[in-house]
Simulated assay, not measured.
Amino acid sequence: MKFAILSRNSQLYSTRRLVEAARGRGHSVRVLDPLRCYMRIACDGFGMHYKGRPVSGYDAVLPRIGASVTRYGTAVLRQFELMGSFSPNPSDAILRARDKLRAHQLLAAQGIGLPATVFGDNPDDTADLLSMLGPPPHVIKLTEGTQGAGVMLTEKLSASRSVVEALRGLYANFVVQEFIGEAQGADLRCFVVGDRVVACMRRQAPEGDFRSNLHRGGSAEVAEASAEEAATAVRAAQGLGLEIAGVDLIASQRGPLVLEVNSTPGLEGIEQATGRGIAEAIIDHIAGRVISRQ
């Protein structure tokens, strides 16, 4: 089977592991920098070149598209889709997941538990907007932030108003959410492949912080998702149209809540924490899906 991996850096851990897993399963695999792909779009067909040569015939394309190249990267992925290649995470699904506001609206509409979230645009409505959420602490998130960047905790109402006003002054897109204090700075990263959770780790925020992201100094240990947590993670991934996703859950008094659905989850932290071959599970899933389409 012929695989392409869209990645800007072939030396990244996740990209290297996926290449290793694909070749270990006997597949042909090539890493393509999406920014070096360029396209011809016409009613008589779709074409793609890469560094001066035609690109075609890939059975499956696995996107590892960073947030900074979302627009162009998803356009390249869409071109592959139009040329007949299968992707476990389609271009439109990635766009849904990257926009936190859109993702929350879609998941909430499907009855999936989330922290209460508010969003508004006019500065005159800030006080009433925050009253819709309830008393602080509040979590304020940029809608396109990643790895914990652009996430702030405000403990006083005046601080929430100040941050909201500052972000509006910068024309930033953001949401404000309730703070789930009972989680005590911990969350659960569930790695979803297809219709199951193949690995799970519990992440703990470092002292003095509430963000548990490993890139922010959080720690991780292997964990087992409960039946309810696993079902919530799979529903969240499928609700956005993703077959491969990192779903972050937080424990609350009303059950597991979805914090975020990551369409390009890293493999290094969770493979090291759990000792599981997630890259192999991904390749096996994609190969099975390609065969089922034939």
Rank of each mutant, 00 (worst) to 15 (best):
Leu188Lys: 02
Gly218Pro: 05
Cys190Lys: 03
Gly194Arg: 10
Gly194Leu: 09
Asp195Val: 01
Val192His: 02
Cys200Ile: 11
Asp187Pro: 03
Val192Ser: 03
Leu214Val: 14
Ser212His: 06
Val222Arg: 15
Val222Thr: 14
Cys200Ser: 13
Gly217Asn: 12
Phe191Gln: 04
Val175Ile: 15
Ala186Cys: 12
Gly181Thr: 11
Arg196Glu: 14
Glu207Val: 12
Cys200Lys: 10
Glu182Asn: 06
Phe179Pro: 04
Leu167Lys: 13
Ser219Pro: 00
Gly185Pro: 00
Phe210Asp: 10
Tyr171Lys: 13
Gln177Ser: 05
Gln177Lys: 06
Ser219Ile: 01
Gly169Phe: 05
Arg196Gly: 06
Ala172Phe: 11
Asn213Phe: 03
Ile180Thr: 09
Asp187Lys: 05
Gly194Glu: 11
Gly185His: 02
Asp195Ile: 01
Gly181His: 13
Tyr171Trp: 09
Ile180Asn: 07
Asn173Tyr: 06
Pro206Cys: 11
His215Ala: 13
Arg189His: 03
Gly181Glu: 15
Arg211Gly: 01
Ser219Asn: 10
Met201Ile: 09
Pro206Ala: 09
Tyr171Cys: 04
Val197Trp: 02
Gln177Trp: 06
Val198Leu: 07
Gly169Ile: 10
Phe174Pro: 03
Ala225Ser: 10
Asp195Cys: 00
Ala199Cys: 12
Gly181Leu: 14
Val198Gly: 05
Tyr171Gln: 12
Gly194Thr: 08
Arg211Trp: 04
Arg211Leu: 08
Phe179Ile: 08
Gly218Tyr: 03
Gln177Ile: 03
Val176Thr: 08
Gly208Ser: 06
Phe191Gly: 02
Gly217Thr: 04
Val193His: 09
Asp187Trp: 05
Cys200Arg: 08
Val222Trp: 13
Glu221Asp: 05
Gln184His: 12
Gly185Gln: 04
Glu224Pro: 01
Pro206Met: 05
Asp187Cys: 02
Ala223Ser: 13
Gln204Val: 12
Glu221Gly: 09
Val222Ala: 15
Arg202Glu: 15
Pro206Leu: 09
Ala220Lys: 12
Asp195Gly: 13
Arg168Val: 00
Glu221Pro: 00
Ala225Gln: 08
Val193Glu: 12
Leu188Cys: 02
Ser219Leu: 12
Gln204Asp: 02
Arg196Pro: 01
Gly181Cys: 06
Ala172His: 15
Glu207Gln: 13
Ala166Met: 14
Asn213Gly: 06
Glu221Gln: 11
Glu207Asn: 00
Gln184Tyr: 08
Glu182Ile: 13
Gln204Leu: 12
Leu167Met: 15
Ile180Ser: 06
Phe179Leu: 07
Ser219Arg: 14
Arg202Asn: 04
Glu207Pro: 00
Val193Pro: 02
Phe174Gln: 03
Tyr171His: 12
Asn173Ala: 10
Arg211Asp: 05
Asp187Met: 02
Ala166Glu: 12
Gln177Arg: 08
Arg203Gly: 03
Leu167Asn: 14
Glu178Pro: 00
Ile180Glu: 08
Met201Ser: 07
Val176Ser: 05
Ala225Phe: 05
Glu221Ala: 10
Ala166Pro: 04
Ile180Val: 15
Ser212Gln: 04
Glu224Gln: 14
Glu182Pro: 03
Pro206Gln: 11
Gly217Arg: 07
Pro206Lys: 06
Ala205Leu: 01
Glu207Ala: 10
Ala199Glu: 03
Gly194Lys: 11
Ala183Met: 07
Val176Met: 05
Arg202Ile: 00
Ser219Thr: 13
Pro206Tyr: 11
Val175Asp: 08
Glu221Phe: 00
Arg216Trp: 04
Gly185Asp: 04
Ala186Pro: 00
Leu170Tyr: 13
